[in-house]
Design a binder for these strands. Structure first.
Lengths: 271, 271
DNA sequence: CGGTGGGTTGAACGGCGTCAAACCTAGTGG
DNA sequence: CCACTAGGTTTGACGCCGTTCAACCCACCG
């Protein structure tokens, strides 16, 4: 219990669409379809959002917050397996995850490339597109999700007027670099067990930061996706999880992970 | 021939200081010591710098360039094996490499951690410090080098006034993220040979971008440092270089690398 | 009830790490 | 000038961890 809100009944537009391999076409909705008005109100600006402490507006005072509200008026729902954007798409906006879970993967997202990260509520996606004007990776929803669309030109303009926003943006970009470097170190020299434990500890930390239980959560991604994130095969991921369970450190049943011995887990991760 | 200018006689302050294990104390000079006035003039602002096309001022017009000159007035020399900053140091400035070569490595730089990157002239160092207010890694000179000191608060202020500078900064940060993702993909699934060839191709590209020969260059780093960058041991690096030589793709003698068959080399790198 | 995608587990192979030894080069001191 | 030293590099032998290939199980759904 006490799992992320978007568990499975979060959005059920009309009919199930599991297993639909046509996971790749873009989404048309840029505003909510009338049908889902009851799911969440149209105008949930940053100032009203429960995430504004950890998201882009972090550190911006109430006065300026109202100006940021202008930025994030458009929102969008992305259904499971759909791409928010794909590698090569022209870059116009960045996206803040409001609810749900994403993966970002290199290449066209056909399912072979490295997965550079998993993003949850309050995290920004798409900043990699700035450098070339085209997205360098694809962002795909792991479950039915919702994002705020933040037009990048407008955000830059506002950042020029609001120093706190500018600083927050820089902090977010810098944080992403630091995270990437940590992952690099892990892939460079960590064993399978170290990679998996570091992954679980990181997930747990980010979830608890958002008010969810740190010791019990559902993995939103498959073993194969974990593997492609950590530079391992799905078999190794599975085996390692089983071993951790045998050691009494965690409990795994399907996607549900329970952390039995948090200390033992943290002790395994290098730094 | 036609190698980077800082080859070996670049700066010889007074006496050799090789093998000095005390590679770790900070540098005191924030302006040039009088002795080295002849090495390069004190006032070489961005507008005069040969690197301004690829460095931070890229895309800034002549008028605004004069304002950026204010930012980069302070420069600093960093001798071989000395740290420009170390992990944990408070973050105040970023640095643009003017000449020489750096490595950035996690941890305190004691020589065990992952090397996140090698930086050459025109590249920015230190952006990772924004997120926490402290540098997350250490930057160490691989040869006698020189950097421009860019106080970050001042740069942010100027970026608010000069959109082109703002955009350039964002582009640089974004580019670093994209590069990290490429490296991630390499460490995640590449063989030793793919990692080494990708590394060589990247080095060659960046050097030729700066006007140096693409097919012949000296490695500024040891085999061990290459290994710590690519997630390999020095032995594997050495063996792989030897194998590439046996295949007739490159020629290696010590640190000197000649690329014999550029196409064969590029064909080996995955993407 | 069968189909399908995801997960687990076993067995054999192989690339790369580990350990060890020798060499090469440059700097140091006699 | 030469011997000595130390760091860097090369090469070989061996073993381990993770990949590969394959079989099987499980949960969910049509």
């Amino acid at each position: 219990m006490s799992n992320p809100p978007t568990d499975r009944r979060m959005t059920q537009p009309d009919r199930r669409r599991r297993g639909r391999r046509a996971s790749d076409q873009r989404i048309a909705t840029s505003k909510f379809p009338p049908a889902s008005r009851n799911f969440s109100q149209l105008k949930a600006a940053c100032s009203q959002c429960t995430l504004h402490e950890i998201c882009l507006p972090a550190g911006v005072d109430m006065l300026d917050l109202a100006r940021i509200d202008q930025l994030t008026q458009k929102r969008m729902r992305v259904l499971r397996h759909q791409a928010l954007y794909k590698a090569g798409d022209p870059f116009h906006s960045v996206y803040a995850v409001r609810a749900g879970f994403f993966k970002t993967e290199g290449g066209t997202g056909d399912g072979r490339d490295q997965i550079t990260g998993f993003q949850m509520a309050g995290e920004l996606i798409g900043l990699d597109g700035i450098s070339s004007g085209r997205h360098a990776c694809s962002a795909v929803a792991l479950e039915d999700s919702e994002v705020c669309i933040i037009p990048f030109n407008e955000m830059e303009a506002l950042a020029r007027a609001v120093p706190a926003l500018q600083r927050s943006l820089h902090r977010l970009m810098s944080r992403e670099m630091v995270q990437d470097h940590k992952l690099l170190a892990l892939l460079g020299s960590g064993t399978a067990e170290e990679r998996i434990t570091a992954f679980l500890v990181d997930l747990s930390r980010r979830l608890s930061q958002r008010g969810y239980a740190a010791s019990e959560f559902v993995l939103r991604m498959t073993r194969e996706e974990i593997g492609r994130h950590l530079g391992l095969t799905l078999e190794t991921v599975s085996r390692t999880l089983s071993r951790l369970q045998r050691q009494g450190t965690i409990r795994v049943q399907q996607r549900l992970v329970r952390i039995i011995d948090p200390k033992a887990l943290s002790d395994k991760v290098p730094a």
